[in-house]
Amino acid sequence: MANDLLKLSPYSVDGLQTPGFNYSRFQDKLDTLPEDLVELLLDPATTDFVQSLTQKYIQLSVQGPDMARLIRDVTIGDIFIGDMPKEISHRLGIDQTFAREITNLIVSQLFTPVIEDIKKVQNERYPGKLPRQNFAPQNSGGQAPKPTVPPAPATQHYQGEELPESGGNIIDLRNTK
């Protein structure tokens, strides 16, 4: 249903009538966010991205709204970006390695165009927690395009495989520039 698609939007996943959701606090937060991050939350491409994740990974097929909430919470700074793998694992009930992989996808494909704004929000909310070096998602080669459908699972790292050079962390402490 099309209405379900709105539930995959980080902006609309919870609304005025969602029990326990503080709509006006959310709007207050949006007022303080950089415009590009607000746009990221409202962008249909973000919804498409979440939808593509639910389609590609069977484990996530019914967890689109939770994914959308997680993206929203990281974007507005309610979750520390370094805690994303743990949060995904916890909220979606998946193992750490898979959670790390999903995190990696979100950062590399969704957050890359707005990474500086994300860093700014995260630094304001969690001062000193982010490493000082530029962090960049793995596999990113400069300015990434708009979020796209993630690559096939076969190309991704799975449990048991050798970890990438960064040790699988989403935050690469090396200056990649």
């Binding site: 249903m1 099309a2 209405n3 379900d4 698609l5 709105l6 995959l8 939007s9 902006y11 609309s12 709007q27 949006l30 007022d31 415009e35 607000v38 746009e39 409202l42 962008d43 249909p44 973000t46 919804t47």
Partner: peptide
């Protein structure tokens, strides 16, 4: 209510950079 509202329709009606 008819389940036809999408993020794209919302963006079309609100336009980009919609204020609060």
């Amino acid at each position: 209510a008819a389940g036809n509202m999408t993020a794209r329709l919302r963006q079309q009606m609100l336009g980009k950079k919609a204020d609060r």
